[in-house]
Nucleic acid binder design. Structure first.
Length: 258
DNA sequence: ATGGTCGACTCTCGA
């Protein structure tokens, strides 16, 4: 079972990228973040023409998540369902496919240290931990993937010493993320490649960052222990990142023998 | 301290 994740940064602009990648790599499940369109503008029919099942939730301009799956999901749900007011919607969805619960998240960026957005990001991780604790079991087959906006370790960002106060590397953000991981997840990329420095994101604001390989590993695939033990391969595909009209993120995929 | 680049959308915000 192949599960993949991709921050598309506008699904309408990069529809071709998705179609080409899906045709080549044939994921069983593809989790997409930052679709950036309202549901009535979502390119549903063309995505369905690939034969995939398509589920999504968006909002105007920002955020938005979608999941493509070869098999029809047994269930689909959106958001935390914790009845707290949403500062922004369309950042979390879950499907159950082939007995595997797949949770797709676009974690809030956090803007700057000390900002309300940063506080919201930290709280978002706490809500996510509560969400896993309330609705899933670490002994079951669960995969959590998406754009986490967290580089978990110094190896996961270029020049870590320069980013100690960056919202994607600050100790408080990393701790909040780690608390969720500690509910029962294994970072399958890091499990298979304990030493490899492999980024999934190069900042648009620094156009030379890709060539200089000054990036971040902030997109992740995490699996509960029973799933992680079945993980046979994980790779980052940076080729679409070099194409014209590239997103600043890469595709990331993992194969599980079930 | 600031700007650099995108995308959505409305002359600005979020990343």
């Amino acid at each position: 079972m192949r599960i993949a994740t991709y921050n598309v940064n506008s699904i309408r602009i990069r529809l071709d990228t998705i179609l080409t990648w899906v045709a080549k790599w044939q994921p069983d499940v593809l989790c997409i973040q930052e679709t950036k369109c309202q549901d009535d503008a979502f390119p549903l029919l063309i995505l369905q023409s690939t034969g995939y099942n398509v589920h999504f939730r968006g909002m105007k301009s920002y955020n938005g998540v979608a999941i493509l799956s070869k098999m029809a999901p047994q269930s689909v749900s959106y958001g935390f369902s914790d009845h707290l007011p949403e500062r922004d919607e369309a950042r979390l969805m879950r499907v159950v496919v082939n007995g595997v619960s797949v949770v797709n998240t676009y974690v809030p960026n956090g803007y700057k240290l000390g900002s309300p957005q940063y506080t919201y990001k930290l709280g978002w991780f706490e809500r996510l931990r509560a969400y896993f604790a309330a609705s899933l079991n670490p002994h079951d087959r669960v995969v959590w993937c998406g754009d986490m906006n967290i580089a978990p370790q110094p190896i996961d960002v270029h020049s870590p010493e320069k980013h100690l106060r960056h919202v994607c590397f600050h100790e408080d953000a990393r701790r909040a993320y780690t608390e969720v991981v500690n509910w029962g997840f294994v970072d399958v990329f890091r499990k298979l490649y304990p030493e490899r420095q492999q980024f999934t994101f190069w900042d648009y604001l620094r156009p030379s960052s890709l060539d200089a390989n000054k990036g971040w590993r902030i997109d992740h695939i995490l699996a509960t222990r029973p799933m992680a033990e079945a993980c046979r391969a994980v790779e980052v595909d940076i080729e679409p990142r070099r194409a014209p009209r590239a997103s600043d993120h890469t595709f990331l995929w993992a194969d599980f023998d079930l």
